[in-house]
């Protein structure tokens, strides 16, 4: 059946206007389709992330329960670390143990005829008084003292000779320059 147009031809829109109108209408439809597709995509992605979030939260709850059951282990770990930190502080404190070790090895190789009268040993300074009944023993002892590596400075603070006991000397050993 042929289309009948009863409107006068003057009232019909110009063809260029009709084309523009058609283009705008098409763009509008495309925009709406894009809106719908985007909305569906976004909702799908949101649901996927939410699912992953829920799964991660449930895993966390399970892990927390497992960690709670290992609380005693954690307590001991914290305790061990705390004690180790305090032990480090103690070990960093000044001690005469190093000086003692050196002096002990020195005293243990004293030649015959050389004796200790007295010694005051601390971490930074050792003062000792020795008696030697011969010059060879004295020389050997001094060589041993010079060979110790704990002290940096060795000072002969007194030296005397007594015909009854022999050589009496006082040494001050320090590790400050």
């Amino acid at each position: 059946m042929p289309a009948i147009n009863l409107l006068p031809t003057d009232l019909s829109p110009k063809s260029s206007v009709a084309r523009v109108s058609q283009v705008i209408k098409n763009i509008g439809i495309v925009a709406l389709v894009v809106v719908v597709i985007s909305a569906l995509g976004l909702i799908g992605f949101f649901t996927y992330i939410s699912f992953q979030l829920r799964s991660s939260t449930s895993n966390q709850e399970q892990l927390k329960a497992n960690i709670q059951s290992l609380e005693q282990t954690e307590q001991r770990l914290v305790l061990t670390r705390d004690r180790l930190n305090n032990a480090k502080k103690v070990l960093a404190n000044e001690t005469a143990a190093g000086a003692l070790e050196d002096i002990a090895s020195l005293f243990s190789v004293l030649p015959a005829g050389v004796q200790i009268r007295e010694a005051d040993i601390s971490a930074s300074k050792t003062e000792m008084s020795l008696v030697a009944n011969s010059s060879s023993g004295l020389a050997q002892t001094l060589a041993s003292i010079l060979a110790t590596d704990y002290y940096e400075n060795i000072k002969l603070s007194s030296f005397a000779f007594n015909s009854n006991v022999g050589y009496v000397l006082t040494l001050v050993l320090t590790n400050q320059i």
């Binding site: 109108s21 058609q22 705008i24 209408k25 763009i27 509008g28 439809i29 495309v30 925009a31 709406l32 894009v34 809106v35 985007s38 909305a39 976004l42 909702i43 992605f45 949101f46 992330i49 939410s50 979030l53």
Partner: peptide, 26 residues
């Protein structure tokens, strides 16, 4: 057609703005 286009663009802006911000939060 203009109102259709306007509606389409408006909805597109709203969907992207709201949707993307929600997704970023999540």
């Amino acid at each position: 057609p203009i109102s259709l286009l306007f509606l389409g663009v408006l909805l597109l802006i709203i969907v992207f703005k709201v949707g993307i911000s929600q997704i970023n939060n999540q």
